[in-house]
Amino acid sequence: MAESLSVVVTTYNSAATLDACLASVRWADDIVVLDSGSTDATLAIAAHYGARVATQPFAGYSAQKQAAIDLALHRWVLLLDSDEAVPADAGKTIRQALVHPTEAGFLIWRREWIFWQWQSSRSRLNHYVRLFDRQRARMSNHQVHEEVQVDGRVGVLDVVLDHYGERDIAGRVDKANRYSTLQVADLGGKGRRGVRMRMLTNATAAFFRYYLLRGHWRSGWAGFIAARIHAFYAFLKYAKLYEATRANAREQRLPGNDAD
């Protein structure tokens, strides 16, 4: 018999995608939705699917997800974003993986919706630990690009999540701006000299990796635009870090800030 499973989702004004997300996991033993103050139909959609709903102010991406995981009834958790959905046959695959599992967690593949189309089937998929034993796993402490850290062996499931993400260019640019600001805290230990070099080189390297190595050139203009924004994000996070180091240095030089 398979282990019981809790599906965990964090939400904020997620009505546009939450219906598809929860409909895709209605077979789960337990659905938890942790909301951070939605004003749209998010809570009504969660109630429609019988989810256990809790609310708390947004504590940051990692901390919010960890708080939601802690609300799960069962040891095994499937962690989803509110703009993700699992395919129709995924339930059977996941149930089979949870029959006497020896792994502490499983990687799951994810395909991306890029503005007006799915990424090419021949481009590289991302993969993340999303199914895990919560007694042997915790969220990382990153401000953004948080991940599940597992203490034990990690397997790979033949499951591909659908990630709807940002539906337009403006949304992706806005996300790059928000995430680059948050990443300043994660990158804060780097020296200013290294930051200047990264401002010069990282955007080009990021474009090369995303567009060519990951194969998004196969997605036509959608892939090209996404690669350009990805490169801009790679530049922007170090530009903001450089700005922060200059601001800190200027503050230390102000009168009254001299060391005793």
Rank of each mutant, 00 (worst) to 15 (best):
Y179C: 05
L182G: 13
S6R: 02
L187F: 10
L5A: 12
N126A: 14
V129F: 09
A72H: 01
K237I: 07
R138G: 00
W118R: 07
V99C: 06
R52F: 12
N141A: 14
L73Q: 10
N177T: 07
G60E: 00
L5H: 02
A54K: 06
K92M: 11
R209H: 15
R26D: 08
Y61L: 13
A41M: 12
F106G: 01
F132H: 00
S140C: 11
A222T: 13
W116E: 12
Q66R: 07
E3T: 00
G171T: 05
A63N: 07
R178I: 10
H145Q: 13
K237Y: 10
R214A: 04
V173K: 01
E147I: 04
R167E: 04
E84K: 09
G50T: 05
V156T: 11
R26G: 03
R250A: 15
A185Q: 08
E146L: 00
V8I: 12
V156I: 09
N13M: 03
D89H: 12
T10P: 03
K175N: 09
S36Q: 12
K240L: 15
G152C: 05
L22D: 02
F132L: 04
R75A: 04
T55W: 05
T10M: 06
D260V: 08
G155A: 06
Y179M: 09
D70I: 01
P57D: 11
